[in-house]
Amino acid sequence: MPAPRSSTRPAHRSPTRLAAAAVILAALTTVTAPTATATASPRRDTAPRTPATDATFQHPAYFMPLDNNPQAISDIVADSGEKEFLLAFVLDSGGCTPAWDGDSTHPVAADTQVAAEVNAIRAAGGDVSVSFGGYNGTELGATCGSSTALAAAYQQVVDKYKLTRIDLDWEGDDLDANMAVRWGAIKTLEQDNPGLSVSLTIPMTTVGLPDTGKDEIRQAIADGARIDTVNIMDFDFGLTSGTETEAAETVADDVNTQLQSLYGWDAATAWAHTSIQLMNGHTDQPSELFTQDTFNSLLAFAQSNHVAQLSYWDLNRDRACDPGVPHNWADGACSSVDQDPFDFTKIITKYTG
């Protein structure tokens, strides 16, 4: 099996802040609970809920609220219609301390800036999930030492933002590592937070799940931890032939077969537990390119299979690059393709499950 190709998550470490917006939003220090209720009965089973449909969170866009010149939430909502956000990333800033981007100057415990963004999203009728991990930085599960300590660190974030959803983006050397600690923590978190929805983000290969991703799922099942949605990074595996649309569809089809085998599901149930995550414009692989037409085609594919979610990395890049300024191949703050602002976000917000 080919080695998995993980996303580098463009310009993860190059923050450019909207200072004026931050000053305005910093005054909002208390996170308000989401208006939508998610109060399912406590679950103790190893498999995800069936069916895994969440009608209020079907097309979340990844968004870095502190890095890569983030757009104002008011502009995103008004100009794209997006109200569902996967906020990235919470990491360890040292000593099992959750912090945005792992930055010791932005610990979750003292945060007001991201809290204000969450309030603004919920005031607009939307909601958020928080993503732990990413390709760069130190994931909490690598350093917290025990399932108890890790569960407490995750719980701090859940409590801070009154979360009903979290995303586990364990990439690079965090994938298939410290699994007993990580899944033990998730089992505790699920027991202590009935109704909490958990997605696991996994990098893809040209034949679907890497062996490391299968190991994660098997360990979760063995440890009694529930994965509600398997979020496949349907990019960065390298296009070797055909079109980007065909390649992404083939990988998703392969994952569907693999999930049927791992969980004993039928195809429809496996799709209902799958989130397809795309990447707009240039990806980290020079052979790959996702245009607006690609997104539209994959929107139709997702709709026809009734997947749990259609997502993408990331909203910060949903704008054209300034031609007068040098940019990376897969720039963190623009798509490197010809587009109008929020073209890609407007496409995924059409997904209805």
Results as ranks from 00 to 15, higher is better:
Pro48Lys: 07
Ala185Lys: 06
Gly224Thr: 10
Thr164Trp: 09
Cys96Trp: 00
Val307Tyr: 03
Ile202Pro: 02
Asn305Ile: 14
Phe85His: 02
Thr201Met: 02
Pro51Val: 09
Pro323Phe: 03
Phe295Trp: 02
Ala38Ser: 13
Ala33Ser: 14
His106Glu: 13
Asp314Asn: 13
Ala78Lys: 11
Ile166Trp: 01
Asn119His: 15
Thr16Gly: 14
Pro2Ala: 05
Trp271Pro: 04
Gly141Thr: 09
Phe237His: 01
Gly94Leu: 09
Ala151Trp: 01
Asp340Val: 15
Tyr161Asp: 02
Cys96Tyr: 08
Thr352Leu: 14
Asn119Lys: 15
Cys334Gln: 01
Pro15Asp: 07
Met279Ala: 12
Arg5Tyr: 04
Ala40Gln: 13
Pro210Lys: 02
Met279Asn: 04
Thr37Lys: 12
Thr345Asp: 05
Asn119Gly: 15
Pro98Asp: 06
Ile227Pro: 00
Glu249Phe: 03
Asp127Arg: 07
Gly238Tyr: 02
Ala40Pro: 09
Leu175Asp: 05
Leu315Gln: 03
Ala153Glu: 05
Trp313Thr: 00
Val198Lys: 00
Tyr312Pro: 00
Gln309Thr: 11
Thr240His: 08
Ala308Asp: 05
Ala222Asp: 13
Asp169Arg: 01
Asp174Tyr: 11
Val337Ile: 12
Ala333His: 11
Gly213Tyr: 02
Asn178Thr: 12
Ala19Leu: 15
Asp266Gly: 06
Ala225Glu: 01
His273Thr: 10
Ala120Phe: 07
Thr349Asn: 09
Leu262Phe: 07
Ser336Asp: 12
Gly141Val: 08
Thr97Met: 10
Leu196Ala: 05
Pro42Asp: 02
Val198Thr: 07
Lys346His: 14
Asp215Pro: 11
Thr53Pro: 11
Arg9Ile: 08
Gln156Tyr: 07
Ser104Cys: 09
Asp169Trp: 00
Ala47Met: 15
Phe295Lys: 01
Asp215Trp: 12
Gly195Asn: 06
Phe235Tyr: 02
